[in-house]
Design a protein around this nucleic acid. Sequence first.
RNA 1: GGCCCGUUCGUCUAAGGGUUAGGACACCACCCUUUCACGGUGGUGAUACGAGUUCGAAUCUCGUACGGGCUACCA
Length: 508
Amino acid sequence: MNDSVRVRFAPSPTGGLHLGGVRTVLFNYLFAKHNNGKFIVRIEDTDQSRYVPEAEEYIFNCLNWVGLQPDESPIHGGDYGPYRQSERKEIYKKYAEQLVRDGFAYYAFDTQEELEKMRQDFKTTHNHSQQYDHSVRMKMKNSITCSTEEVNTWLKEGRSHVVRIKMPKHENVSFKDMIRGEVHFDTSVVDDKVLLKADGMPTYHLAVVVDDYLMKISHVFRGEEWLPSAPVHILLWKYLFGIDAMPQWAHLPLILGPVGKLSKRDGAKHGFPVFAMNWTDKNNSEKTEGFKEKGFLPEAFINFLALLGWNDGTEKELFSKQELIQNFSIDRVHAAGAKFDYEKAKWFNHEWIKRLELIELKSKVKDFFSAQQFEINDSTFLEKVIELVKDRCTLLTDFYPQSIFLFETPTQLDIASIQPKWDNKKNIFFTEWILQLTEMINWDATYIEENFKALTNLHNIKTGDLLLPLRIMLVGGKFGPPVFQVAALIEKKETIKRIENALKLFNS
RNA sequence: GGCCCGUUCGUCUAAGGGUUAGGACACCACCCUUUCACGGUGGUGAUACGAGUUCGAAUCUCGUACGGGCUACCA
């Protein structure tokens, strides 16, 4: 449809990658791929105080895990680099100065203390926090209020200063959002945002406009939290590159937690992950659990994320990445925020565990066993195990408890649930069954079951009364696949061994 | 406080003037299952409120209420 589609995800390397961040990546990616366009990742590392060195690598690891690979990025290369804003510092400075020259921005020399004083002085019951805007601009220390000589001297002295945009008074700025339609702002209520900080780094507002222009970004998908600063960006586009060159905007609905915008805290409080992968905060060693380690499949993860704010208009809910690419369209993204539902997320995962190719599932299950210090070598056996238990596994972490007894003898038996009804009659039955099992030649589930039932008849005991004891003997608890299939899988020798051991325990 | 965005079952959503307001998750009941699940059938459950436009409004308009976001030399 359009081969000049270029979109970008622009994370700030300050910590773990949030659910909402991944959803933004997803919509960018799907839009790009649907339109044969390019998906770019740009690192917005302009805040030196919040910069976390490990975060960038972590972000790319997450993208790798979910399978949303960038076409261009600091590590994938590309023709529009550098892709880290810290490496583009000089570029922004040039544009900031151009804006000052053209009268769209100005130097401001106010110290932190002076800013604080201003906010206090102008604070009223009706104005919680006074902005640095047209109403106070003339009372502050900047290149509009001070003489040219003064300003030049300060500049020469290297006095600490920022560049601020000069918001026009009473101008209507509007643009067409792809999701929300026309959105209007009165520039009088927008403040004179800082464009270039005292350390020479740009703020987001300047950098985003400059880089989107230089990197030829055609469409911008970002979270709804950016909507209020859109007028600043629109004006910068107008001043710097012309409104015709401006990309199309789409402000994505927020992903909500139990109270407001979903946060890391919500996850900790309610026991669900919020980050894509495990993240450890180096400062306080605080660990935050990720969807990957929690046992989610990337297929399920992107599937439920896509359905948070988008649907294809049919009742279809299960989409592979390819299907998402094919069917995605921005006009089916809706405007209201979506509350994250962990139960539904788990349902998606369960569905994907059931439908994923055995080969792919196998290696993941193996990894989760390794995480429990248990190495699986017999791949064919593992396949049988997966087929047998996958219906009972919602998360990949469930495979271990749901099938470990197929690999090794259970150490803990739930004796309590059979003890009250255990008697010598049952003991005699099992003792005799062991003898029959020893003679058995056809070791398969149906055959074992038939044999078992025949013997219960002979002993005049209800089969149902013996099934649970057998299950506890072989599995250890009241769960798991059909008990004769368990016996078939663990083989004759092990079955007999487990019954013998359990018998000793039950009778003591 | 100001500005901006939003509002259909508890949750995710369909229905773009005419439907008994549909589906999915969760929940409940029954069936299947001599365990636990899967699966199957059915059920509870929603258009925030008030005006207007219209023969007819969940759908268009306005107001109110409520929810959310922003209001940093953070993104």
